[in-house]
Amino acid sequence: MTAEPSEPQPPPGTCVFVARGLRKVYHTGEVEVVALHGVDVELNAGELVVLLGPSGSGKSTLLNILGGLDVATSGDLSYKGWALDGAEENTLTLFRRNCVGFVFQFYNLIPSLTARENVALITGIARDPMAPEEALAMVGLQARMDHFPSQLSGGEQQRVAIARAIAKRPEVLLCDEPTGALDVTTGIVVLEAIERINRELGTLTVIITHNAVMAEMADRVLHLSDGKIVKARRNSQRSAASGLEW
């Protein structure tokens, strides 16, 4: 990448990520594990994509490479025309800081900071952030802003994590099992927040899950197995997160 990614939000339907022949090989001791076996995929602006697949299918690896947390062993990956493969650590840091929001299964909030301060961590370093209060309002937490993580329920903590991820107005929101640690009701509330972000901000949203039900809320569903995309389908109509049941 030659310049800092700083383009305005692309119109819906334009390619944000283009991956060609992505391979990822891990070496653990003497064992070689091939996590991605040549993945070709295009992810478009404004899309909500769900990645389904069993454990070890390579979903998280793909997500981490897309988000600049990891680099592919071979293959090409571009973000809005910029090559991400072979990018330097500093460039990846800037990419994460300005373009990508992450949500993990475990909320990973800083326990010593309040909800508002956790979000403010990002707004302090991002280029064009929204106010922490605005981000928290988007996930319905305006009333709990000055609570510490220990004073919030699991669902609330995950919503703070989402607010933290989107406060920078990222072009991409990557969610790794965002409801994995939550009960159904709370999980739905979290999914509603993600859905709202995707709809209102037009953020390309990628969700990894084991839960096939969640595929209903996606524009597109990609099935991974053995490090390859084995099936892709496009939903003719997205279901509302509030209507999901599992």
């Binding site: 650590e89 840091t93 800037l94 800081r97 992450f102 961590l121 370093i125």
Partner: peptide, 16 residues
């Protein structure tokens, strides 16, 4: 380590 990794993921520089 978890806090630090989180900061790293959200885009803090190593020095920060």
């Amino acid at each position: 380590s978890r806090e630090l990794a989180t900061l790293r993921v959200v885009g803090f520089r190593l020095a920060e």
